[in-house]
């Protein structure tokens, strides 16, 4: 199956090399997808624990703490590194 990957937020330029679509095994979990994406980041880079996760528009927690989710073909996985600013 194939999911779409959207990254944004703080230091968004560091994830520009990630693919827009990710091929995964059938019934892959959210953690499988995060692990795969982590492997594709630059050496030494990782997603921050506070990074928000949404699956097809529904917020499911953070990298550090999220609910177990099974992904389906066509899902959109959004990873959002929190921003503040002022």
């Amino acid at each position: 199956m194939k999911i779409r990957v959207v990254t944004m937020g703080r230091h968004y330029h560091e994830t520009e090399g990630l693919p827009e679509f990710l091929e995964l095994q059938e019934a892959a979990s959210l953690d499988d997808a995060i692990d795969r994406l982590g492997e594709l980041l630059s050496p030494g880079a990782s997603f921050p624990g506070s990074c928000l996760i949404a699956v097809s528009g529904k917020h499911v927690g953070t990298i550090a703490s999220h609910s177990a989710v099974s992904l389906g073909d066509g899902d959109e996985l959004m990873l959002l590194a929190p921003v503040a600013g002022g």
Binding site: M8, G9, Y12, H13, S50, L52, S65, P82, V83, G85
Partner: peptide
């Protein structure tokens, strides 16, 4: 909130919706 050329906005009604701390526990 903002960073670079991106921004986020959330609207909270505590008790009925997620609050900021629900979203950012730390």
């Amino acid at each position: 909130a903002q960073w670079g050329m991106t921004g986020t906005m959330m609207v909270v009604r505590a008790g009925l919706t997620a609050c900021l701390q629900c979203v950012y526990p730390q």
